[in-house]
Every structure is written in structure tokens, then in C-alpha cells.
Simulated assay, not measured.
Amino acid sequence: MEIRVNTKGYAGRTLHKTMRVITNDPKNPEVVLKVSGPVAAFADIKPATISLRGDAGEAISGQAVIKSLDKYPFDIVRTTATANARFTYELEKSDKEGETGWILKVTDPDPQGRYTGTVYLHTDNKIRPQLEVRVYGNFFERKLPQAKSAPPPKN
């Protein structure tokens, strides 16, 4: 029997999963298996999600910092984004204090409505050839202040 567990979202934490196995053994028709253990982080991405929020029509931007960890060194060789992404992005390499890192800047020049998208960071490491940074946009129509009407005249 082979068990595969999706560890996405568990980096740097302990994963706990429970599975039910149905058998043809009349004495043990069901067996519960528990799997747990630490999930190693491949990279440090902060924040993991870039949230763009504000008034519609006003350019807005956000950023994430990506750092390579000693255990899994990598370089980012190219970037792509969700098809028809409504945002632009740029990746800038940063070598601060001997740490390899990148700054991902995301901008929406004319934000409207709500959307989700993803920037894909393609690495040269076979363990994780692709990292993802999600982008959420949520923009509101600016409400103009309403003119107050004068109170009715008193008789």
C-alpha cells in the first residue's frame, strides 16, 4: 500500500492526517491509519499571499520577500503568472547579509472588482521546480459624500 499526502501549506509545521482503510478481513473490516510528522520548509516566503485592496481606479501595489533556505538552495530562473493576470509584477534579486533572496513586487495599475491570480517562480532545484505566490485583488467603488439637504422650513 502506498500513501501520498499533500503537504502544501504545512511548511515548517507538523502535519497530522488520519485515513480509513476498508479491508476484506471480517475481524478488522476497517483500519484507521494515522500519519504525522514535520514538514520541512523549502523556502521562506513572506507574506505567502499578496493582498491588494483599496479604492477602484487607484493604482495599488504589494510585495513578498522570498528567501532560499540553507537546506534547499535554489535560484529563480524565470517567472510566469496566471493567464490573463490583471496585475503586473517584477522580481528583484537581493543579497542582504549573505542571504540570497528576492523581492516580488506586484502592481495593479487600474484595479477594479475582485480577482485572484498567481505568480509562479520557476527554480533550478529539482525538489521544488516551482513556487507559487497567490495574489488577491479586492477593490471598491469610491462612494462620493452625499450632499445633505436643508431641513424643511418651520412654519
Rank of each mutant, 00 (worst) to 15 (best):
D25G: 01
L121K: 03
T100H: 09
K154W: 15
I66R: 01
K17L: 11
D124M: 06
G113C: 08
T123P: 04
I50R: 02
D75S: 10
K71N: 05
E99I: 13
E30G: 04
F42K: 00
Q112R: 13
K148H: 06
K27T: 10
A59F: 00
V77L: 05
A150D: 11
G37F: 11
I127T: 13
L69G: 02
T14H: 09
I3Q: 01
G101K: 03
A40M: 11
F87C: 05
Q112L: 11
F140K: 15
T82Y: 10
W102S: 03
A41F: 10
T49V: 14
I60D: 09
N24Y: 00
E30F: 01
P153G: 03
V31D: 02
P151M: 12
K8H: 07
H122N: 07
Y72I: 08
H122T: 08
K67F: 06
T80G: 08
I60G: 01
S149D: 13
T88R: 12
G37D: 07
E132P: 05
T118D: 10
A150V: 10
T79L: 07
S36C: 04
P47C: 07
K17E: 15
M1K: 13
A11V: 01
A56D: 06
I22D: 10
D70K: 09
D70R: 06
I3N: 01
T7W: 00
L131W: 05
K154N: 06
L52N: 03
